[in-house]
Simulated scan of single mutants.
Amino acid sequence: MNNYTELHDLELIQLAKERDRHAFSHIYERYWGVLFIHARKILGNEEEAKDIVQNLFFSLYNNINQIDFKTSLSSYLYRSVKNQVLDYIKHQKIVDRYLESFNAFAEQGVAVTDQEIRRKELEKIIEAGMEALPGKMKEVFLLSRLENMSHKEIADKLGITQHTIKSQISNAIRILRAKIGALNVFF
């Protein structure tokens, strides 16, 4: 039985490549703590740091025979943790941007949709209100507001006084405001 604490990293790697579980466990014990502290220091999040280090050792165990250790084991592990931390941060930024974008869309989408519904409802109430106006009042109001005719032009066209025109428009507006006021109760 080997005394793993006395073995150098290269010897532990070689034994781990031969599927010596004790050698791999010793690598894990030797480096887990310092890698965790390194990842936690960068991330500021203990759980994420644990996950990154655990994933690193899982990957190392599964791929140890394909890895060509050109540098020291400690350099390889630190570089791997750094790369995984950077990948995590990059991924987190993308997720955060997506969530911000989605939230902005959701907030704006609801507001736009709600605003559009209100506008259409208001148009329906105004149209219904104009249709319900008495004959001459409706005609005067439509000529004034939709055809932009002056009081004098309407008076000349309909053969009534400008005072009557002004009175009819004022009454029409009062009636429509009452109907629109009922809409504001619901919104």
Rank of each mutant, 00 (worst) to 15 (best):
I52F: 06
L35Y: 04
K152Y: 08
K179Y: 10
E131G: 02
K41M: 10
K82W: 08
A106Q: 13
I125R: 03
L122H: 07
E123H: 14
Y98P: 00
Q108I: 03
A49V: 04
M1Y: 12
Q84I: 00
N103Y: 10
H22Q: 09
S170T: 12
M137F: 02
K152P: 03
F36S: 05
R118W: 07
S167E: 12
G135K: 07
L10G: 08
A172W: 02
S59M: 07
D68T: 11
F57V: 00
L56V: 07
V140A: 00
D9Q: 02
I154T: 04
E47F: 09
Y76H: 14
Q162K: 14
I52Y: 01
N65M: 02
N45G: 05
T164V: 08
D114C: 06
F57P: 03
S75H: 12
G159Q: 05
H91D: 14
L133C: 02
E100Y: 13
L77C: 07
E48I: 14
N3Q: 13
H151T: 06
L73H: 05
Y28C: 03
K152M: 04
I89C: 03
Q162M: 10
R40Y: 12
E47V: 10
G109P: 06
K138I: 03
G129N: 05
N148A: 12
E116L: 10
D51C: 03
L176T: 01
N184M: 14
I165C: 02
A132E: 11
I117S: 06
A111C: 00
R40M: 15
E100T: 08
E127K: 04
L133Q: 03
G44E: 06
T161G: 14
K41W: 00
L7H: 06
L99W: 09
K17P: 00
Q66D: 15
N171Q: 12
R40E: 15
T161V: 00
E29A: 15
R177V: 09
G129Y: 09
S59T: 11
L158I: 01
F141L: 03
D20E: 13
Q115R: 15
S74V: 11
V112P: 00
Q84M: 13
V53A: 02
